[in-house]
Design a protein around this nucleic acid. Structure first.
Lengths: 320, 320
DNA sequence: CTGGTTCGATAAGAGATACTGATGCACCGT
DNA sequence: ACGGTGCATCAGTATCTCTTATCGAACCAG
């Protein structure tokens, strides 16, 4: 159960070949064969069927454990190294696509540090922070008001609420529901949804709202794999499906910079979301779009940055 | 970063002595010294101050990572071994103190298996299941209705809701609020609370209710470190403080076995909780006492047991 | 200050481990 | 049947990881 052996095991299963894994890891094929054999002896059970190379049931179980295990290993190492090094000279902020409200830019000015803002997928934010690829993470998601986000447990990270705002249902301007002042999820039963990494996941609604899972009614009509908000909105306008966006994402286009910080989502009523699309607040279930700041131990100038980010609003801040 | 080295490092810091750790681990003092040195060379930074033996800041960071890392290692090994072994002959059910509603006993009759029901602390339930010490876990906690419990991420476990019932505030019979039909948390501002592992943690209420943390108002007047419900109730009766219990825990004493399964907590109004104490439903915030079933992959007779446990009630069941 | 005691570091050597390179063997396509 | 591919196995060596033995610093009693 060496991390070393685990890594070769994972590589072998991923590539489906001992020789290829040996090549990738810089070993000889013989070494890889012996390492897998050692793992199997250690656990007392075969992990791989050879020819074709396929994990046995036991191997599949191990695979499920191996990835998070190796991730935590990397996180631990990075954390220790950061503690040993001096205070950071440069800061990398890893943010999921919708975790950057318009007022974020102002708040990042504070520290006299070389700062990088990097957009990564929602899944990778916590990993980047834990493994030291980033110092600070910004993660967005859907949650009940004041509820913390459910984040993957990759190590001793602290999560602090940064912002909460209303969720808007984005519909084509001509849509029958587009004139409503508010929409319940029930109103949208059977609607066609647009799925995009930049948009909030409709499936999450089900879980947060406490609805029985697996039920029909969230049809995905179109998938957009880019990150551009304008494209998302124009896809909605063109009738490819509805989507969910935080209120500030809709306003950013037109009233950019004029909004009053965190409160930008709190104006009741609909918002025009660009040519041909409008946003209508989602009133039921009562969920919000929430952004949290993720960080490890705060050292030196980082503490100032994080407290700047999480300053004024009274967002709930449960530690992890 | 061998788990081996990590383990000796943790042991050394725990015991504060190289020799003692060597003794406990069955090594010579020399070996332990070399292992710690190897870890320090690997990470490129000192981890321990010698004489007295104290972790450096970097060492403290590593310590925080080491425990969950080793736990996951054990969990992975146990999981693989279970997958490799045949279907289990015996079942250990690890339950937190309040996770055993009165109707649980009936449900455990089903499988023709040697069954052990073991009460462990709330913190250890997930660990026991993950590490293979138990096949099934029953974990209770406070949550918003239909919300899953927040459980420590020790591996790929599945959590399924088993029961939800109302929370009762237990007060002395003569208490001014004891005649009410329902109580809000606001009614109890400044009250004195009894803390016990068998009782629901008052602090959790704050988090679940979304109240700002750290605020005053939950004074602990008495701590009981035992697990006996009758003692808890009699402590309340004697005026040592209020406490929270799931409805069925109060009814168990007198109407045992007569209640109708999951619905046992749903009768509106108060319940007498034993000599000198009464329970009054907590109406605000709207939280429930929830019990979840934790399990790994379901093999053979275990599947029957778990589906028996989670059968009839329409409790929400979000996977983890 | 001195001599004894404790505890961790270090040196040297035996045994286990973990590689490489060579070879063996099963399977597969032609 | 035959060469090719791909994993297992073997032998040899380099490295690692223990043990035993010894050293040296800190502490303590006198």
């Amino acid at each position: 159960m060496d991390p070393h052996l685990l890594r070769t095991f994972v590589t072998v299963t991923r590539l489906g070949s001992f020789s290829a894994a040996a090549d990738e890891l810089g070993y000889t094929q013989s070494a890889v064969s012996q390492q897998v054999a050692a793992l199997e002896t250690d656990l007392g059970t075969p992990l791989l069927n050879r020819r074709p190379v396929m994990p046995t049931p036991a191997g599949q179980r191990l695979l499920e454990h191996a990835e998070p295990l190796l991730l935590r290993h990397r996180a631990a190492r990075a954390d220790v190294l950061r503690a040993a090094a001096g205070p950071p000279r440069r800061v990398v902020v890893a943010a999921s696509p919708l975790a950057c409200p318009p007022w974020l830019a102002r708040r990042l000015r504070g520290p006299r540090l070389e700062t990088t803002l990097r957009t990564v997928s929602r899944r990778d934010v916590a990993e980047q922070v834990a493994s030291g690829a980033a110092e600070v993470g910004l993660l967005d998601g859907i949650a009940a008001p004041s509820d913390p986000l459910r984040l993957p447990d990759v190590g001793p990270l602290t999560a602090v609420g940064m912002a909460e705002e209303r969720l808007m249902v984005v519909l084509p301007a001509g849509h029958p529901l587009a004139r409503r002042r508010g929409l319940a999820l029930a109103d949208l039963a059977g609607a066609l949804w647009l799925q995009a990494p930049a948009a909030a996941a409709v499936e999450r609604l089900r879980a947060v709202a406490g609805l029985p899972a697996g039920q029909e009614g969230f049809r995905i009509g179109f998938r957009y794999e880019g990150h551009d908000l304008r494209t998302v909105v124009s896809l909605v306008a063109a009738g490819h499906g509805l989507t969910l966006l935080p209120a500030s994402a809709l306003e950013a286009g037109q009233t950019a910079g004029q909004m009053s910080g965190q409160m930008s989502g709190q104006v009741m009523g609909q918002a025009t979301a660009g040519p041909g699309a409008v946003g209508v607040p989602l009133t039921e279930p009562r969920v919000v779009h929430r952004v949290e700041v993720l960080h490890g131990p705060l050292r030196g100038p980082l503490a100032a940055l994080v407290s700047e980010l999480t300053a004024s609003p009274a967002a709930a801040d449960p530690p992890t």
